[in-house]
Design a binder for these strands. Structure first.
Length: 565
RNA sequence: GCGCCCGUAGCUCAGCUGGAUAGAGCGUUCGCCUCCGGAGCGAAAGGUCACAGGUUCGAAUCCUGUCGGGCGUACCA
């Protein structure tokens, strides 16, 4: 498809003297108008003329220059229509020869992208809120992989901080009242909740919590550390089960504890940069120069321990030194905007020119109809339950519509989990999501299962076709009416680039929904099997190409594409 | 108070580096399984693009202000 765009653009450059790259072609309002559009307003401004008249004159010139592409003036627009046979040949050959690699490119060659994703907290169950970071981050990583970047997905586990002192204190006090080994996460959650209920009126408990964290940070490998290690191990075992279901893996799983040995050197480095100061007993970096009300970045509390910001500073230095990243993406909720802004401000004050490669990929909150989720208040929906219920619903539908399906249980899991993932990636990531069961469990309309179903239908047609039908001589003219679908397939590579650049997986989900809609209409109107051999071959090629793009798109999102369901 | 994010159909959302009559899904109503999968297809109804100014030949899109919602605002993460 790129070849047509280039041909048109260079013909326009030739005919008008506009600079290449100073304009770009648009998609016509309606498919009947043409395949590509060039609005003539810019030219009208430059030449102080009437845009409609200019379009008319230009059409004449371009029709002489272009071969196999017709230029049609429609009012102030100049629309281009590629010869139907050429369009089908070019796009289908492009997709079919690349196969599963269609859409991949080399634009990221030699560049490294570090992605910080998921980052659950030890000792707390994963809620549907953690789903967002995991699923968005993993999709962004796969998109960059497809574009040739070297990617490093890091799961920055929340395994450090004062709450672990509290947790150790709670385990010490009440550990034998819960079943830590049998059901670790729920037990730890219960202890965590109990600690917060009782600490307010119990200074001894408060002191025990603080002391435990101080011991943890001091590096002493004693009782506190042993308990902490146990909690971490038990939690990770549970998390890994969920990651397996979501089909997500990480290149590095590094808790904040990993940066323990880097904390002092990091603080020293920032002190050496001459930008720190003492304030109210704490070590801070003032950020007043970025705004009167920008709060300072705290590196060390008055009691000597470090903070979240200290550990993130250590992590970003470590990552830069290790990878010299081209981008470092933090897939973290929008409620932490200020934190990442401060981190970037500190880097800026240090005069580090790679500061702008650090990006906070913020996403909206997941909330319940009754309000904000809160683990402590028990106002949460656990991810495991959502996945279970979705798979169960999918299983029921399969039992009803396709009772003889082989491997039904596995496919129910793929459809159920796929629905959950797709639903999360469907809208722009900055938007808050209200968690509504009926929406998550919906498998019709703009949903993952709709796209999966479309894929399965195409796979079914291919299965039923005669051997060799795909390799016959295609009659591409028979696809004259299929231009919108062909053009949609041609857009796929561009969609991947845009989605990766913007770190916005919804670019891809929205594209796939549109493509699936286009395909379903097309199937209803064009019978594939049992036509003239040339016609069947051409349509079968289109079916195969569409199937490839849907499968590839879904896999980039982390959603399975079963051949039947 | 201050800062940031969001505001498009009854609901959930596309469209936002300005361009042709603002598009989907859900829900509602009406059609379509002697024909490759009805988790589908076709059609109808539904909009002062929060409001008010401004920039422009042209604004849902850019700028300013107002309102509404969310998040954050130094020793939690």
């Amino acid at each position: 498809m790129q070849e047509f765009i280039q041909a048109i653009e260079s013909a326009i450059v030739e005919a008008t003297g506009l600079e290449a790259g100073s304009f770009s072609l648009e998609k016509p309002r309606k498919a009947e108008l043409g395949d590509f559009a060039f609005p003539c307003f810019l030219l009208a401004k430059r030449d102080k003329g009437n845009p409609a008249k200019i379009a008319g004159e230009l059409a004449g010139k371009l029709n002489e220059a272009l071969d196999g592409i017709e230029a049609i003036a429609t009012g102030p627009y100049l629309n281009f229509k590629v010869d139907r046979g050429d369009l089908a040949r070019s796009i289908l050959n492009g997709v079919l020869s690349a196969g599963e690699a269609y859409g991949n490119s080399e634009v990221g060659q030699g560049k490294t992208v570090v992605i910080d994703l998921s980052s659950p907290n030890i000792a707390k169950p994963m809620s549907v809120g953690h789903l967002r970071s995991t699923v968005i981050g993993a999709a962004i990583q796969r998109l960059h992989d497809a574009l040739g970047y070297k990617t490093v997905g890091i799961n920055h586990i929340g395994d450090w901080g004062s709450q672990f002192g509290k947790l150790v204190a709670a385990v010490d006090r009440w550990g034998d009242t819960v079943d830590l080994e049998g059901d670790p996460i729920k037990s730890l959650l219960a202890l965590y909740v109990r600690y917060h209920e009782e600490e307010e009126n119990d200074p001894v408990l408060q002191a025990a919590g603080r002391a435990a964290f101080q011991e943890l940070e001091s590096g002493v490998d004693g009782h506190v550390r042993a308990v902490w290690r146990k909690l971490t191990q038990l939690s990770m075992e549970e998390f890994n089960r969920t990651y397996a279901r979501l089909n997500v893996s990480f290149d590095e799983v590094r808790g904040e504890a990993f940066y323990e040995d880097y904390l002092e050197p990091t603080i020293q480095r920032i002190v050496d940069a001459g930008i720190t100061e003492e304030s109210e007993g704490a070590l801070i970096v003032s950020l007043k120069e970025f705004g009167e009300n920008v709060p300072p970045c705290l590196l060390r509390k008055s009691d000597g321990t470090t903070l979240y910001a200290t550990r993130d500073m250590a992590a970003v230095f470590h990552r830069y030194e290790l990878y010299h990243f081209h981008r470092c993406l933090y897939v973290v909720g929008g409620d932490q905007r200020l934190h990442f802004q401060q981190l970037k401000y500190v880097l800026q004050r240090m005069g580090l020119d790679w500061e702008d490669r650090v990006e906070h990929v913020a996403f909206g909150m997941m909330r319940l109809p009754e309000g904000k989720m809160s683990t402590r208040k028990g106002q949460v929906v656990f991810l495991e339950d959502v996945l279970d219920r979705a798979a169960e619903e999918a299983g029921k539908i399969i039992a009803e519509k396709n009772p003889d399906l082989e491997g039904a249980a596995e496919i129910a899991e793929q459809v159920g989990v796929g629905a959950v993932i797709f639903n999360d990636l469907k809208r722009e990531r900055v938007k808050d999501i209200e968690f509504v069961w009926s929406e998550v469990l919906s498998f019709e309309g703009d949903t993952g299962p709709y796209v999966q179903y479309t894929h399965a239908r195409l796979a079914s047609i291919l299965r039923k076709s005669e051997a060799g039908a795909l390799e016959g001589t295609p009659d591409y003219a028979a696809l004259a009416e299929s231009a919108p679908l062909l053009l949609a397939l041609g857009q796929f590579p561009g969609v991947l680039e845009k989605a990766a650049d913007r770190a916005e997986p919804s670019e891809l989900t929205q594209y796939l929904l549109g493509l699936a809609r286009e395909i379903n209409s097309w199937i209803a109107a064009n019978r594939v099997l049992g036509q003239e051999p040339g016609v069947t071959t051409a349509r079968l090629q289109l079916v195969d190409a569409a199937r490839i793009v849907l499968a590839r798109g879904l896999s980039l999102l982390g959603v399975a594409a079963p051949d039947s369901m």
